[in-house]
């Protein structure tokens, strides 16, 4: 009896074998390295933001609103962003008016109407490839087509040319996000609608689009934000890269859009960034802060839309 009681019981053996005593060094190392990569990426982001704020802070402190409301000037103490912000806003209007309906319309055709033909597959493949074309190549398209070929309509180097170029640039992305949103709508919904005798368009309009709209809007806002930060194509599509340009006094918005010289926020940042004088560093950084704040606001709207939609769906 005494010897037997000293033998470990089954439960002791089991307990010993399933309680992990060995420290899993590899596991800890892997987790540490992975976490490190995340923190390095975060660190870069924080460094970038902090660097811009530090370099640009004096501009906001010294000039405040004047920096936003002043026009361009060769004097970095006086130069401001009003023309850049105006140009960027008008460019976005073009993107929304042109690329949104075309992109969503094309997506509706591809997802809801098109049969699986070679033509359809070609359009889809073509769209994916267009999304991967470098933005400066779209600039060449904008230069050749909108600035030169269609100058009768666009008046050459105007906001119309720039806006159309950016619209064409984001069109494939618009199509892809809208397609994904439509594909996420459950097929049971379409069946239910056809089942009560709805036509294709009635089904799309009353059932598919209402369900897909939040995702389409979110994607579109993010896409517009991307267009807002684009500058390479505008270099070719007629934006003015200069420290100064003026519009004749008293010209209306329509004339400015159809006839005037133009620039955009990222273009101004680029132009300031390449100026050799040290005084331009501060306003470049300050311009970047303004650019990032606007982008953050726009992205915030998109994320808000997405959250509201997912909360309502829950």
């Amino acid at each position: 009896m005494a010897t037997r009681s000293k033998m470990p019981t089954t439960s002791d053996l089991v307990k010993a074998s399933i309680s992990g005593k060995k420290t899993d060094f590899v596991g800890i190392a892997v987790a540490f390295i992975l976490l490190l990569t995340v923190f390095v990426s975060l660190g870069i982001l924080i460094t970038l933001l902090a660097d811009m704020l530090i370099k640009g802070w004096s501009v906001f402190a010294d000039r405040g609103w004047d920096f936003i409301s002043s026009p361009l000037s060769p004097d970095p103490e006086k130069a401001g962003l009003s023309q850049a912000i105006f140009g960027s806003l008008i460019l976005m209007v073009f993107v929304v008016i042109v690329a949104f309906p075309l992109g969503v319309g094309a997506a509706i055709y591809l997802e809801e109407y098109a049969k699986d033909t070679r033509m359809t597959r070609f359009i889809v493949a073509n769209m994916r490839n267009l999304a991967g074309v470098p933005s400066i190549v779209y600039g060449l398209l904008g230069f050749a087509v909108f600035v030169q070929l269609l100058s009768g309509i666009t008046n050459g180097r105007t906001l119309i040319s720039g806006g159309l170029t950016l619209a064409v640039l984001v069109l494939p992305i618009m199509m892809i996000t809208a397609s994904e949103a439509l594909r996420a709508v459950p097929d049971a919904l379409r069946q239910a609608s056809y089942g009560v005798g709805a036509t294709k368009w009635e089904t799309i309009r009353h059932h598919v689009l209402p369900v897909a709209t939040p995702a389409i809007l979110t994607g579109s806002v993010l896409t517009v934000a991307r267009a807002f930060g684009e500058s390479a194509p505008l270099l070719l599509a007629g934006a003015v890269l200069s420290n100064f340009f003026s519009a004749p006094a008293g010209t209306g918005v329509v004339t400015l859009v159809t006839e005037g010289d133009y620039t955009a926020l990222p273009i101004v940042v680029f132009n300031w960034a390449r100026q050799p004088q040290k005084e331009f560093v501060a306003i470049t950084a300050a311009g970047i802060v303004v650019l990032l704040v606007i982008l953050l606001l726009v992205n915030g709207v998109a994320i808000y839309l997405r959250d509201r939609a997912s909360r309502r769906a829950a």
Partner: peptide, 9 residues
């Protein structure tokens, strides 16, 4: 009438 109830949202 379908297999799974599919009311419109």
């Amino acid at each position: 009438v379908f297999q799974k109830p599919n009311p419109f949202p």
